[in-house]
Amino acid sequence: MSDWGTYTLADFLMFSPRVYFRLIERYNQEFWPLQLAFIAGALALLVPAALQVSRARIAVLPLFALAWAFCAWQFLWTRYASINWAMSYAAAVFFAQAGLLVLTALLPRSPTDAGGLRRHGGIGLAVCGLLAYPFIALVAGRSPATAETFGMMPDPTVATTFGAMLIVGQKRLWLLLPIPIVWCVYSGLTLWAMEDLGALAPFAAVLAMLVVLVVGRR
């Protein structure tokens, strides 16, 4: 078909920003204060992991698998798919990512040590994903009830996952990075089509992760 050139980004947006952000608001209200528990849980593992406590590092992948599965089930499948049919496929892909994280956790690990830059970059990304991401709603001029948090919403979960992978010096990144990167592009474009300033965040997360990965190569 030759008419693809006639489509614009907005042609693919099938809901209004009002509907989308109300959906997030209602979701947040329903689960409050689970958001805090997710963030606290991630900090409880990532801080010791960053300090190279090996037991904490083992638990990182299962926790992230849980976060991906929760996003897939409660946000993408149960809620977002009601206004965007494509999200039932995205939910399946998120479950697959949760599976990949579990699988990777089960594979034999060679003792690794992330290089200094990667570790610091990872800490920066994780801090952004866990603590700064919720404030993007305010920066974008939205109600704080639309704040996106780790484990609840895909974007901060992805950003924090990038950070965690860098912190623990995760091997087999070729397996774990494609889905989060594709998601960030999709999510960034969706927010862009809604003219929301938050659109920059998923792109920035991918860019930061790739820069840290490349520059921190040893």
Binding site: F15, V19, R26, S82
Partner: peptide, 13 residues
């Protein structure tokens, strides 16, 4: 009804 009626299960909308 494109976009305008796609309101999910939001009772208000």
């Amino acid at each position: 009804t494109w976009i305008t009626f796609n309101v999910g299960d939001d009772p208000v909308l």
